[in-house]
Amino acid sequence: MSPLLALENVTVDFDGFKALTDVSLTLEANALRILIGPNGAGKSTLCDTIIGRVRPTAGRILFKGEAITALPEQEIVKRGICRKFQTPGILPSLSVMENLLVSGRKNRAWWRAFTTATPAQEMARAEEILETIGLQDRRDVPAASLAHGEKQWLEIGMVVATDADLLLLDEPTAGMGPQDTQRTAELILSLIGRHAVLVIDHDMSFVEALNGFTTVLHQGQILKEGSVAEIRADAAVEAVYLGRAKDEVA
């Protein structure tokens, strides 16, 4: 069987600046993949390319065996890819529950929206996700009043609610403290098996907590792939990324 997602020799060229060069990557259904790399390595561009916000200059992207490289953004979402952005993309004046219900809506026809009733199945699923992201106590407050970490979890919940086969999580722990980061890792691990997840981050403690198959990007190219331990032990990675990260911390 073909993998869920396959990038084949993808190159993105922004007027002469190569954001991605010849990147190939495959991801199986319900699997976890971590993508790390220093700032400017092309992580977010890779995400943008998958969801159709940026078009590759060369190469192609296959999703469920079909090319999605030229499809419009909405069509790619419909095929089953949903992305969480770096800055929390929640709907601030809607309640936490409404955020999840809007995301999990099955019938999207606008003329079916003139009702106050929510299908029991969608309601049950939203409650379930609410529990998964641990925001039961915050169910009916406006999303704007959530703490920063809670907003990130809510958005993960929203992405999950779409029931997409592939979730792209762009820096889900940005701006979080160590405790919240740990909880986020547990949350993401609980999603594996139901969705494939591609996590982008550069917080090593978070990556270690996830402990999945990791791809290191550097200057738009794949530098190394392997388990977190292998990445840790690799001299080249150490030189361009981990070492520098340590310096930054120090």
Binding site: I51, E73, Q74, V77, K78, C82, R83, F85, G89, I90, L91, P92, S93, L94, E98, V102, S103, R105, R108, W110, M158, T162
Partner: peptide, 16 residues
């Protein structure tokens, strides 16, 4: 209200 809050966000959730 969702459209007011984040038109692009709901687009990437697959709504028009």
């Amino acid at each position: 209200r969702a459209t007011r809050d984040g038109e692009n966000r709901i687009r990437f959730l697959g709504h028009n």
